[in-house]
Design a protein around this nucleic acid. Structure first.
Length: 777
DNA sequence: AAAAAAGGAAGCCTA
DNA sequence: TTCCTTTTTT
């Protein structure tokens, strides 16, 4: 058992405690992945059939890597029958084989967020509900919330509290929309991401024989990143594990950062309540970072109340102090970071891929891209629009999805007139309305076009276009029976006119679109070859489509990537490590985010995010913040993040000596370093930063303005033309914070007025009127 | 009636 | 900036 050698005491315990419930609290950099893989290997060497092991990971990439590592220990044939993957991919697979229980076709389509949004938009429109009041994105996130908490449409309708809550939030049609959306998805034979979990729960609850089958199969269950599971996932795990209770959860409560998509930190905090006999193992030695970094991260995270007591420590070198840079503007900050990387690259011979720039929001990327490009430093931005979300890629995939599931009317409508073939909006609407009224799918109508056409009032020209289109699709479907997925896709790309359409556009963007389609074809070819190599591989088109639908992590960072600086959000950086980390934009209202300073829970999550960011660093960490930043089309004042003041000074070194200690504020409420002379200093600052952004950033400059407090101001209501006066002393209502009173107004530019509002329950908040959507009461 | 072109508004928190 | 709506052209 060589693989057990080199484990420390707690790692050893985590690997070898095989029976019964086990919780492994794995601090950052404590060798968690190693423990997980060794544990599975150990299970297998102890005679457990891999077929009986279910291992749920956070990303598909993690699953793949882990599987490879396990294969090295126990041999590839043993590793093969392991059930390993994300919740979504594992249960999508199960749902496909059990779909008939739920009345779904086994070839159901999986909708990504964009698809879901399109269906939702259509639903809202069909219900004749004002889309301005019911912003699809907002509605979708509410629906997602319901689903993650197992609130089905029926449960919703039977829950007066929920209905009342939605009414209070000015969304009394939520129930109606929810119902319609679910019906549409069902009709399309499709599930969104949340459905994959919700329907699994339904399957396991309603059909005891199915539950028994999977309980019996998954005798040993491992869940990674347990702190980021949502309620729905929690229930699935609990149901499956309830027979044998061989459940091992691994995670770190200090790194729970996904509550905005439903993750519930109490799943891990209450594990002991669910399984009173559970053994807890804490992995506390950090092998990744210097002592300085570990200690600095510790003192910050210690400010959180909701957490397990841990003593994370490092026995690595003490290391350098964290360097803090105060910059004048976002561009200045980016120049500092780029210059610093350049210098370390030269002076310490660090390769570019040693560096990461981590930020809170994607919109911060641009400044860094500009600065790096100017210095000719190679970089790669992670996140943002992923390859599979590109329009041209989704268009081709739309065709392919339609071939597999012709009831997928979302896919059908996407491509029925793309490339344009004279089937315009009017025709499309007629089709949909008719299909709905007859309770048929659009595909069925097209199947029997000659019969239905008279009822549709189409002229001959339209009928010809429609039947031409549909016979083309049918021909593709026939092709699918004999040809490989790749050949079919190639045929689709050519015969649908898609390639021709894209090639007609010779602009650089157009050329890159063609390349993207080619890239899709390549990845398809790669997928097919890979699947053929595998003994139990499945090179079919449906399998390919499922794979991409679930690979939100396709463009994740690979280790040993090319020699480039990595730029990504902190969320994306979870699980990665870099010798040198620049954590940027450490400003109030940016990090912590202005959306997240409302409640203690939100703030604690931001602090965990900070913890995650800092613990990515192995050798050196740099913090930076700007005193003003180009944001929302305006130059906005910024104050140093409270997290900066939460790091003990012994771990920090200030690069702007004059500023040393100036921002430290022990109240936890942000302070402005210029508070002593508010107006003069601020207007001075404005001038200064304007010159900077002009020369260095070439961005439009805001009109000069005086910044003196005003007694009243107009607010612009973004959702309509109506504007409303808000004055000091007014009682106002906020979507989230509730009722409060305006204490102070600041600024004359109607686009940029800040209000200090004292809320009944949430206390004092600084809000930008334009975004706060306050209602006067 | 459909397609292309132009104009205008909102968008930003995080996968 | 990107997406959506409106206008103009065929």
């Amino acid at each position: 058992m060589d693989y057990l050698k080199g484990l420390n005491e707690s790692q050893y315990e985590a690997v070898t405690t095989l029976q019964g419930p086990l919780m492994v609290l794995a601090g950052a950099g404590s060798g968690k992945t190693r423990v997980l893989t060794m544990r599975i290997a150990h299970l297998i060497t102890n005679g457990i059939d891999p077929f009986n092991i279910l291992s749920l990971t956070f990303t598909n990439k993690a699953a793949k890597e882990m599987k490879e590592r396990i294969a090295k220990v126990v041999g590839p044939s043993n590793a093969k029958s392991l059930w390993m993957g994300t919740f979504h991919s594992v249960f999508a697979r199960i749902l496909r084989s059990e779909a008939h229980y739920l009345g779904y076709p086994s070839n159901f389509t999986i909708y990504d967020q964009q698809d879901a949004l399109n269906v939702l938009k259509k639903s809202i429109k069909d219900l004749n509900i004002d889309g301005d009041l019911y912003k699809p994105k907002k509605v979708l996130s509410r629906i997602s919330n319901y689903k993650n908490n197992l609130i089905t449409v029926r449960a919703y309708e039977n829950n007066p509290e929920l209905i009342e809550a939605d009414e209070k939030a000015n969304m009394k049609f939520m129930g109606k929309i929810y119902k319609k959306y679910v019906e549409e998805c069902f009709k399309n034979g499709s599930m969104d991401f949340d459905d994959l979990l919700l329907k699994t729960n339904e399957l396991l609850t309603r059909f005891p024989e199915v539950l028994a089958k999977y309980q019996d199969r998954f005798r040993y269950i491992l869940v990674d990143e347990y702190q980021d599971t949502n309620h729905s996932q929690y229930l699935i795990v609990k149901a499956l594990a309830s027979k044998f209770e061989n459940i091992c959860v691994v995670g770190d409560d200090a790194q729970s950062i996904y509550s905005f998509r439903g993750a519930n930190i109490y799943n891990i905090l209450n594990f002991k309540k669910d399984y009173p006999e559970a053994v807890t193992v804490s992995l506390e030695q950090n092998y990744r970072s210097t002592q300085n970094i570990v200690n600095a991260a510790n003192v910050v995270i210690a400010k959180n109340l909701q957490q397990f007591k841990k003593n994370v420590f490092s026995e690595n070198e003490v290391g350098e102090k964290i360097k803090v840079y105060r910059s004048l503007s976002d561009a200045d900050e980016a120049n500092f970071v780029a210059g610093n990387i350049w210098e370390l690259h030269n002076r310490e011979q660090r390769k570019f891929n040693n560096f990461a720039i981590l930020y809170r929001t994607n919109s911060q990327t641009r400044a860094f891209e500009d600065a790096l490009r100017r210095k000719n430093i190679p970089y790669k931005v992670y996140g943002g629009l992923s390859f599979y979300q590109r329009k041209e890629v989704k268009d081709l995939l739309g065709y392919l999805r339609l071939l597999v599931n012709e009831n997928d009317s979302e896919a059908l409508m996407r491509i029925i007139n793309f490339p344009t073939r004279g089937i315009g909006e009017t025709t499309q609407n007629k089709l949909i309305v008719f299909a709905d009224s007859q309770n048929l799918s659009v595909a069925k109508v097209l199947d029997n076009l000659p019969i239905y056409a008279p009822h549709l009032g189409f002229n001959n020209g339209v009928i010809t276009k429609l039947s031409d289109f549909w016979s083309m699709i049918k021909a593709f479907q026939v092709l699918l029976k004999t040809e490989t997925a790749y050949n079919v896709a190639m045929e689709v790309a050519k015969r649908s006119g898609l390639i021709k359409f894209l090639k007609d556009d010779q602009t650089p963007e157009g050329i890159s679109r063609v390349e993207n389609v080619q890239e899709l074809m390549n990845s398809m070819q790669g997928f097919i070859e890979e699947q053929i190599q595998l003994e139990d591989g499945d090179p079919s088109l449906p399998n390919f489509l499922e794979n991409i639908a679930l690979s939100a992590d396709t463009q994740d960072k690979k280790n040993g990537d090319e020699d480039m600086v990595s730029l990504m959000t902190i969320h994306l950086s979870k699980g990665l490590e870099f010798p040198v980390v620049h954590l940027v934009g450490l400003e109030e209202n940016l990090f912590p985010s202005f959306m997240s300073s409302a409640t203690r829970e939100d703030l604690e999550e931001e602090r965990r995010l900070f913890y995650v960011a800092l613990t990515r660093a192995e050798k050196q960490a740099f913090f930076s913040y700007a005193v003003s930043r180009f944001q929302w089309g305006k130059i906005t004042d910024a104050e140093p993040s409270r997290f900066l003041s939460e790091v003990d000074e012994e771990y920090i070194e200030f690069l702007n000596p004059a500023m040393e200690g100036r921002f430290i504020n022990k109240t936890g409420i942000s302070s402005n370093i210029f508070d002593e002379h508010p107006s003069e200093m601020r207007s001075f600052k404005k001038v200064e930063k304007k010159t900077i952004s002009k020369s260095e950033n070439d961005k439009p400059i805001a009109e000069p303005r005086k910044l003196k407090p005003v007694a009243s101001a107009k607010i612009i209501n973004p959702s309509g033309a109506s504007s409303q006066d808000i004055e000091v002393g007014d009682k106002v209502r906020h979507d989230r914070f509730g009722i409060g009173e305006v204490a102070f107004l600041d600024g004359t530019d109607p686009q940029n007025i800040k209000a200090k509002v004292v809320f009944l329950h949430e206390g004092e908040k600084n809000l930008i009127l334009k975004y706060a959507k306050l209602t006067k009461i």
